[in-house]
Design a protein around this nucleic acid. Structure first.
Lengths: 205, 205
DNA sequence: ACATATCCATACATACATGAATGTAAAAAG
DNA sequence: CTTTTTACATTCATGTATGTATGGATATGT
């Protein structure tokens, strides 16, 4: 094949990543060969090995297109001076909205349900990293809430943090097993708001 | 090789399942061959293909040694006439204790983090089945609690059910990413009891 | 005691997947 | 305009997993 321009080369790189998302999602990471990905993009393995060192490198690049820490999601909401608990609510909402975007949905499903470790990739560690970022952010918001007296008496901020984190993780995993069954945004926000009401001092409107 | 007695044959079957647990856990399901499993048990693939039809069949048999629905765990506690909320607490406690047993820990880790679908095995569907059983059980207990007026006002039993289910799932997934980091029984029960206190009508002792 | 079914090892055929080597035509650099 | 690099395609050598067929020794049923 002929050489492409820089823009065209970047386009084929994206096409390979798109193809990887689809084939990984359909067949699982271990069961898909680089040949399958290449052919699904209308290319050959030569293109794959040009743009990526190997399967693990391709996988990492695929993840890098969608990863965004919790703090960045909060910043995206523009909640600059809201109360800590309202900030948490907005962060969760933004997370849920993002998860429903097709690309994020596919990649998250691949990370959680369609790959096991291979090469130097440890999906478990990646998940732990994402969860850790989220936990740290929640911890600081609930610490603020505690200082401001917004939390219900007898509820330690650490416990509130872990409960909210567990709820996010639980909703996320349950939804991801069958994302078409319901909207995580709708059902998730019901639970999040209920839990925040339980945790906050003045539950009566 | 010569024919073995029935007891010996059963012992090799168990040995193959033990080996499968260990090698699957160490290498992941997709990256382990039946040859590796056989050699780890001091046998050959001939033994594997005699006792199991293929890898998927072996995998299923491995799961069948440890699966136990939530209701059975509750029954195991002997909580015959406790209050619904106390029954839920005991069920969670029993679940956590079971998860800490080495065999269950290994197999659950394999199911959640070390396999993707292959053959006719869909780990996602198996997880969904287990979660569904748990959700049904929780649903009936919280419905009872609601009828008995044990739930806090304004808390729908369906919401309470989903919150508790999400918390169990979240704690479980977080712990399973690094089971040696802490005891799920200790940390989990703190959260479960805190959440049950938030959900119940008379939170003040 | 005899025949047979059982339990497992060995051997082989088939099928992919990987990675590296090589080819090549056009874009970019000079 | 020439040279070099780029961006792939093609081919091949190697390794490895699977499934099956077959062999052999012994438990077990009768």
């Amino acid at each position: 094949m002929a050489r492409r321009t820089k823009a065209e080369a970047e386009a084929t790189r994206e096409a390979l990543l798109d193809a990887a998302e689809e084939v990984f999602f359909d067949n699982g990471v271990a069961r898909t060969s680089l040949e399958q990905i290449a052919r699904h993009a209308g290319l050959t393995r030569g293109a794959v090995y040009w743009h990526f060192h190997n399967k693990a490198d391709l996988f990492r690049a695929m993840l890098d297109r969608v990863r965004m820490p919790f703090e960045a999601l909060v910043a995206e909401t523009g909640a600059t001076d809201a109360s800590p608990l309202e900030t948490v609510r907005l962060g969760y909402q933004q997370s849920f909205l993002r998860m429903e975007q097709p690309r994020h949905r596919r990649v998250l499903a691949i990370l959680i349900h369609r790959c096991e470790f291979f090469g130097d990739i440890d999906p478990c560690a990646i998940q732990a990293e994402m969860a850790g970022e989220c936990l740290d952010a929640l911890g600081s918001y609930f610490a603020d809430a505690h200082r401001l007296g917004l939390l219900k008496e007898g509820v330690a901020p650490e416990v509130a943090t872990r409960l909210m984190q567990a709820i996010l993780s639980g909703i996320f995993h349950d939804w991801l097993r069958d994302p078409d069954a319901y909207s995580i945004h709708e059902r998730g926000m019901v639970l999040v708001e209920a839990q925040l009401a339980l945790l906050s001092r003045h539950e009566a409107a």
